[in-house]
Amino acid sequence: MSSNVQSEKFRGSNVKGQADLFLGPFYSLLRKEVMRFLKVSMQTILTPMVSSLLYLLIFGVSLGAYIQMKGGISYLEFLIPGLVMMGCLNNAFQNSSSSIIIAKFSGDLEDLKVAPISYTQIILAVALGGLVRGVVVGTITYVVGAIFCYFKADTVIAIHHPLWLLVFIVLGGLSFSLLGLAAAFWAKSFDQMAAVNSFILLPLMYLGGVFFSIDNLHPFWQSIARANPLIYFINGVRYGILGVSDVTPEHACVVALVTLVLMYWLAFRTLARASFLRW
């Protein structure tokens, strides 16, 4: 009997009662998502930093010198919150989509299906993983932009409404992370994933008011632009940082919340129908 107990211990017991099927899978998957982008931080953090620096140089300095925005702010100042949010959303999307596409390709997506994990746990963990990367990239972009602005234009970019900023970063990061998850679970090939990137994500980004104020648009284009949810996320962040925006933060917040709910629904629906089998 006692030898039995000993061998049980030697076998490395894991008493079933200790298993936490609620937090365990969620925490483990979230940890994996975050570790994954940290292990390739060259691509996932440094590249976005370089690209926002390029945007600042090209648009903020060379072209921006000729543009004056309303409310007495320079184009460079106007640009920074947009770049922060674009970096955040884009990286949130890329994190969940590339994580899942790679998992499909290498086969470890099957591990998730075979384990006792619920769709909700997968969705929450992957969405949060994307948000973490979005926040990291957004923060770096802000710091780079603020330093750049300080030396170039002698202006300090202070954060006017930190709580609003947090609200829009979190809602936006989660929404785009969920969109990336849905797209990657839906995609049956690299080509399909690339198509989502270039035909949906990029147009939304570039027409989302990072580089222009919708007030400067023709009324017809203004109404088109208002149909793009990115306008609200980006203007929300602009309000959070600069205290000025094209839409009120309350209005933007409602749109952001509705977008998040829609994206969650889309992610859940796609996941429930998706195949976890390897490509």
């Binding site: 894991n14 936490d20 099927l21 937090l23 940890r31 994954r36 099957e110 384990a115 006792p116």
Partner: peptide
């Protein structure tokens, strides 16, 4: 065979344990 990209054997087993709810599974 399943590939795991960036992760090493120990990390893979740690994630796998977590998927089954076991966050402290080093002994096993």
């Amino acid at each position: 065979i399943i590939n795991h990209g960036y992760f090493n054997v120990e990390e893979i087993l740690s994630f796998q344990s977590g998927y089954f709810g076991l966050l402290h599974n080093r002994e096993r």
